[in-house]
């Protein structure tokens, strides 16, 4: 054991969020697909994986299924919102996350509603069950490295350049005979897939999920990280995730009661978000502005 139990916990969260944030950056930053509903994919992944694992599916299969199911929703979201622009698109994607939230809350037969799903099993891989947090840390680190590597390869491939071209000048790209709609579908589905994977890692780490974990306050956190890190920069997203998850830990030194700690953390994220928008909307390593 190298780190204290608490530090291990923070590192696990950071790696889970890196996958989530980089996947949002793939859609929002690289492809220019405005999406304020990304936490919905995270939630869909978490619920899919938790429910399948409780039904007895092996962990890796449940995790892949979580990613695939989330990417089905990514496909649906692009079908539904393709014709919208600007703040209507923003509100529709935000509305999508509200719809998913209220489904999680109301489909009680499947999701147990507001009571949430307790007792999600820890992952078992080839007869080896991950029990301690140290083992989980190594596991998330591995999944995170693989996911980020894949996404890094995607954005630096010719396909990735097409995605960036979709963002910068879609009309030009269509003139060149590329199908921008199909590029959008692919980008959103890849983005949703990895969000689903990170949702699965989250669910099996915390072992309890309820709909409030996938709502507007979570959205603010993810958006803050992406914007602070900078749109279109994987490096920025990784640095910003570590920074922003770590900053509110300063609060713990003040010895605040836990009823204040949670809201104070949220308030700090909101302040960081508004400040970065006012001072440097490109973020730390950003290449492009938001629309």
């Amino acid at each position: 054991m190298i780190f204290s139990a608490y530090q291990t916990h923070i590192f696990i969260l950071i790696f889970i969020y890196i996958i989530l944030v980089v996947s949002l950056n793939l859609a929002l930053g690289y492809t220019g697909l405005l999406n304020l509903g990304h936490v919905a994919f995270f939630g869909i992944g978490a619920y899919t994986s938790a429910l399948l694992a409780l039904e007895g599916l092996t962990y890796i299969a449940a995790m892949i299924a979580a990613g695939l199911f989330a990417s089905v929703f990514g496909y649906l979201l692009v079908i539904a919102t393709d014709r919208l622009r600007g703040d209507y698109l923003a509100m529709a994607t935000l509305g999508f996350s509200f719809v998913v939230y209220s489904l999680l809350l109301n489909l009680r037969d499947v999701t147990r509603g507001a009571m949430g799903i307790p007792g999600i099993p820890k992952p078992t891989i080839l007869d080896f069950t991950i029990r301690t947090n140290d083992q989980y840390l190594i596991f998330v680190l591995l999944v995170c490295a693989i996911s980020v590597f894949i996404m890094y390869r995607i954005v630096n491939s010719p396909f990735g350049k097409l995605l960036e071209a979709t963002r910068d000048n879609a009309v030009c790209l269509r003139v060149l005979g590329k199908n921008t709609l199909s590029l959008k579908y692919k980008a959103m589905m890849i983005s949703a897939f990895f969000a689903g994977i990170s949702g699965s890692l989250y669910a099996h780490y915390i072992t309890f999920i309820d709909p409030t974990s996938f709502y507007i306050s979570e959205l603010i956190l993810v958006l803050t990280i992406v914007i602070v890190g900078g749109l279109g920069s994987i490096k920025g997203s990784i640095v910003a995730t570590a920074l922003i998850i770590y900053i509110p830990e300063v609060l713990r030194m003040l010895d605040l009661p836990s009823s204040v700690l949670g809201p104070a953390r949220q308030a700090i994220y909101a302040v960081i978000l508004i400040t970065i928008l006012m001072i440097r909307p490109k973020g730390l390593f950003g290449k492009v502005d938001l629309e």
Partner: peptide
């Protein structure tokens, strides 16, 4: 700033005061 940035900032304001 674009309208989308204003919208994101306003969600930030909402979350901020909600927690305050």
């Amino acid at each position: 700033s674009s309208n989308v940035i204003l919208l994101i900032a306003s969600i930030g304001i909402l979350i901020f005061f909600q927690n305050i």
